[in-house]
Amino acid sequence: MQQGGMGGPNLSTHPGHLRQGSLMSLLRCAMVAWAVCAVWTTDDRAQLWADEPGLWADAVAQAPAKPRPLMNLAKQYVIDGDVAAADAAYRQAMALASATGRSQDERIHGVGLAATNLALLRCRAGDRLGALAITTAALKHRPVSTTLAEVHSWLELQRLSCS
């Protein structure tokens, strides 16, 4: 250990002081790193908010058991014209909404809206009977979403007018 001129310790090179200094530096580095990470993440989030499909894909990754992000991702697939992906996502959303542990709101509106959108997708493809089968099956869930009931009635009317 290096001694100071007065016989006392030279604090700048004392092992304890060095440890103190390095801990301070470490703390400061951690604070700077946190600040840089925060700004970096904000930049990431701002970019993600400019890309709605990416935003919902990220939400699905964050909450894989929640039906709403998946339904909104499915809507993005529909906008992009990827019907197969939308179909699969709506089906998965229906399954998630009726899973154990989900809220009553999700059971009603989650199942109802996913089934409605799935039926409308089928309708757009010209498969009205397929659409009717989807709404009929979903109507077995109780209580029933109003939107789903309305779409089912409309599909029934279409079937009756065609037959």
């Binding site: 925060a38 993440t41 989030r45 939400a59 964050q62 909450a63 992000p69 542990g101």
Partner: peptide
């Protein structure tokens, strides 16, 4: 923590 930001959080999970 600067983690897990999302437009839709799953509190039930």
């Amino acid at each position: 923590t600067l983690q897990s930001f999302s437009i839709d959080h799953d509190i039930l999970a």
